[in-house]
Structure formats: C-alpha cells, structure tokens
Measured scan of single mutants.
Amino acid sequence: VFVDDHLLEKVLELNAKGEKRLIKTWSRRSTIVPEMVGHTIAVYNGKQHVPVYITENMVGHKLGEFAP
C-alpha cells in the first residue's frame, strides 16, 4: 500500500496529539489507511483543495477518487 511519507507523518502526528484539523495535500495517489479515519483531508483536484472527510468505508481507496 502506498502513502506519501509527508502525509502519513502529518496524520500520525495529529493522532498522537489527539487533534483533528484540516490537512492539505497534493498527493491524490496516496491510499487511504485506517490511521486517517476521522480526519478531514483537503485533496487538490488541479484547481482547488476539496475537503474530504475520511470514513471507514474509504480505507483501501485512493484520495484522488474522492476529489473529482
């Protein structure tokens, strides 16, 4: 499973602090992992960042699938 390192670091850091804030990313190719559930990730679609709230059903899919 591929997840960009910088994105995973941000998610794990927020989980350690117990925070839930918006994470901006250009990494549409990253796979959604269970650690991301409950976070809102702003995924770049080529024009703007689209906020995507991550749920359990999204695990295993790519971030780009949810930012048309």
Rank of each mutant, 00 (worst) to 15 (best):
E56K: 10
I23Y: 01
T55Y: 13
V59Q: 10
E56A: 14
R21V: 13
T40A: 08
G60C: 15
L12S: 06
L14R: 02
F2A: 06
V52T: 09
G46Q: 08
R29L: 12
I41V: 06
V43E: 00
S27P: 01
Y44G: 03
E65P: 05
E19N: 06
L63A: 01
E9Y: 11
R29P: 06
V43I: 11
R29F: 14
G38L: 08
E19D: 08
P51W: 05
F2T: 05
R21I: 11
S30F: 03
H39V: 02
P51M: 08
P51V: 13
E56F: 14
G60Y: 15
E35F: 09
L8G: 01
G60A: 11
L12N: 10
F2N: 06
D4L: 02
D4C: 09
Y44C: 08
I23A: 01
A42W: 04
L7Q: 00
R28I: 04
V37Q: 09
A42E: 06
Y44I: 05
T25D: 01
M58P: 00
S27L: 05
K17D: 05
L14S: 05
T31F: 12
I23G: 01
P34G: 11
S27Y: 06
N45H: 08
L7I: 04
A16D: 06
H6R: 13
P34S: 10
I41C: 02
N57T: 11
I54L: 10
M36L: 05
G18E: 06
V11H: 00
W26F: 14
K20E: 03
K47A: 11
P34F: 13
E35C: 14
K10A: 15
R29D: 08
L14K: 01
Y53N: 13
K47H: 13
V1G: 15
L22Y: 06
P51F: 05
I54H: 00
L7M: 03
L22M: 12
I23F: 03
H39S: 02
E56S: 14
L7H: 00
K24C: 15
T25G: 02
K17N: 09
W26Q: 07
F2M: 06
L14D: 02
F2V: 06
M58S: 07
K20Q: 06
N45V: 06
F2K: 05
L63R: 00
H49R: 03
H6F: 15
S27R: 05
V52Q: 04
P68A: 12
E65A: 10
K10L: 15
I54K: 00
H49S: 05
I32S: 00
A16E: 10
E35H: 08
V3H: 04
H49G: 06
H61G: 08
T55I: 13
T55K: 12
H6W: 15
T31L: 06
T40H: 08
E56C: 13
N15E: 03
M36N: 00
T55A: 12
V37N: 08
K47W: 10
